[in-house]
Simulated assay, not measured.
Amino acid sequence: MSPTGPFTYQALPMRVTMGAGAVAGLADELDRAGLRRVLVLCSPRQEHLGHAIARLVGDRCAGVHPHARTHVPVATAKAARAHARDVGADGCVAIGGGSAVGLGKALALEPGLPVVAVPTTYAGSEMTPVWGLTENGRKRTGRDPRVLPVSVLYDPELTVDLPAHVSATSGINAVAHAAEALYAPDTSPVVALMAEEGVRALHRALPAVVADGSDLDARAGAQYGAWLCGACLGATTMSLHHKLCHALGGTLDLPHADTHTVVLPHVLAHNLPAAPRARAALSRALGGVDDPAAAVWELGRALGAPRSLRALGMKKESVGEIVGAVLAAPYANPREVTADGLTGLLRRAWAGEEPVAAGAVHRPGRG
């Protein structure tokens, strides 16, 4: 037996190009994928980037669809599918963050259009076969290799206008992917290496990105970290953190990356006592700290990220609803999740208190 013990690692069939000016190779990527008529997907806020992509691909652009929304409402997906059908698109280019990539995944799922992704945030969802659709206050997720982009172009020059707040929260969102991959039941030594390196890269890059948005080296480092962290999520099973964030986002329509940023330190405080290898890897990646949960909390504070679910618009009385939604669906997690433990975790996250392990004495933190 190998020193690491038996494990399985499934590589994902994707092509990744990274570097300043990478988007100039978009036409070549479309050629590789055999795409001749693509619909450009983006959010309303990034419509200018959508039109820039349209100009770049020229006659191969079937139109710009600037209607991507957080959590991919089913109605939004249906409208995009109808638009793609009406213009005869044979593929999509998704430019932007998780909303645009998520909408691209919806079109890859049905009617099966290949997607080329051009990420402009650091969430890393473009590297995963995980899709999500929201309807009637519930976010439904699944895994399907068909939703993986056929090609991903990481170009730090496209991120220089990204607000510091979005850089910070999308980066910590990526850290969450790696953290959960470290204690997933189907993790492997390969995933563990990628996760630790991804967190290390983001921990180094994000303060520089927030301090100087024009620092292309820092932005490239953040994209590198996001790529690795996203690939980890794509290769492993999601646990408590992602279940919580999906429930909070789908039920309460809280902003995606902000929610991940607030919740992650609290979930780490709950789970890491039962996951010593994950704790050790995160400790190393975060600079040799003793308490990774506290280090992630402090990273968010230093980056000016939101501190509480209350600040994101959640009402305190919604805690019970979220607890019920999370406990209703079974999932793998390294530590038992009880109603009392989850209630305490959510109340601390709602109030903006410092993260503590379930059952431990805690003290209010800075909001």
Rank of each mutant, 00 (worst) to 15 (best):
A281D: 04
P330S: 00
C229P: 12
T120L: 09
A274D: 11
H67F: 07
L252C: 06
G98Q: 04
P265Y: 00
A332R: 01
Q46A: 06
V319K: 09
V150E: 10
A79K: 03
D161V: 11
R284L: 08
L312I: 07
P156H: 09
A22I: 11
H256K: 04
D217V: 10
V118K: 00
D161R: 12
C245M: 07
P111N: 14
R277W: 10
M194E: 13
R200E: 11
A20L: 12
P156K: 09
P364W: 14
A178M: 12
V116D: 13
L233Y: 13
P66S: 02
T141G: 03
V115Q: 01
A179P: 14
L327P: 13
P149K: 02
R279W: 02
P66E: 03
L327Q: 12
P149A: 05
L303R: 08
P330F: 00
G91M: 09
M238Q: 11
A20S: 10
M127R: 05
G124Y: 03
A294E: 06
L133K: 00
L103T: 13
A269E: 01
E47Y: 03
R310T: 06
V57Q: 02
P207Y: 14
E353H: 15
R32N: 08
A329G: 13
A226T: 03
P66R: 00
P292T: 01
P3L: 15
A339K: 10
G198N: 08
G97N: 02
A164I: 03
P66Y: 01
R279G: 02
S308A: 11
A201Q: 08
A349F: 13
M18N: 01
R200Q: 14
G341L: 09
V267S: 05
S188Q: 10
